[in-house]
Amino acid sequence: MTLILAAAHQAGWLGQAIDLSVEWLLANAQGLFDLIKVSVLALVSVTEMVLEWPPAWLFALITAALGFWRVNGGFALFVLLGFNLVLAMALWSEMIATLSLVLTASSLALLIGLPLGILSARSRLVWRLVRPCLDLMQTMPAFVYLIPAVMLFSTGAVPSILATLIFAMPPVVRLTHLGIVQVPDDLIEAGRSFGCSDRQLLWKVQMPNAVPTVMTGVNQTIMLSLSMVVIASMIGGGGLGDVVLRGIQQLDVGMGFEGGIAVVILAVILDRLSQSFAGRRGSSLQQRLRAWIALWRSS
């Protein structure tokens, strides 16, 4: 099978160059990769430990309470019923594993993406460099990231998280940049006229005004993380993706759907909760729509 594929298509000169550079990295920067591997592994293990600590009923209650506070009663009910279904399908520990992968990957993506977005908004040069990278990251088929991730970090949670990180980072960078850039000129002028330094302008005028847009980016990053984490089960990421993958491999429609439904439940809960932090309650959908329209216009 592999032989036939190799005969049908040999990597071209560009592919060979990329092969070579990955090999060079493997040969010369193994220490760095080991360090990254260990720290990401530690991070995801701690996250998983924390999430696994409460029993399922307590976890569901806490999430429902959060949902009641941030969204509404109907959503809290959905959380309880949804988690109940996951438990009934015996997919609880898989869901927790997926959740910890998502949380680790998206918090790393935010840790890098937010400062990068701010920097892009403040310097035209940085934006000119960052923008094509973001385009590349967003349009490259998600599966492609899996190959170098496996080569550099072998299989397991760490390459899954890193591939997810790259896939999920663009929205938060883009929307942070957009949010800051689209702050009305008269507010900037007002800030300047009262003697703001560049730093004061950023933290007292631009960032507070950009928060709804930035939070939309955060929401998108979390959602993309979830979709990528499922795909990353192909390289041993584990969790709900595994269930779906097994369903495909064994042509077991029922199993595939069970995994799929659990992913959907998790997605809805993550989406509504992260959205609720995007601004005023109740208007977040409209706000999100507006931010997206603005985003497409700008790019």
């Binding site: 009305p184 008269d186 007002a190 300047r192 006229s193 003697g195 005028v205 507070p208």
Partner: peptide, 16 residues
């Protein structure tokens, strides 16, 4: 100078 000597009022109000 802007902090201590002069303050500005805008046509569009420009409130935060």
């Amino acid at each position: 100078l802007r902090r201590h000597q002069m303050a500005m009022v805008f046509q569009s109000f420009a409130l935060f």
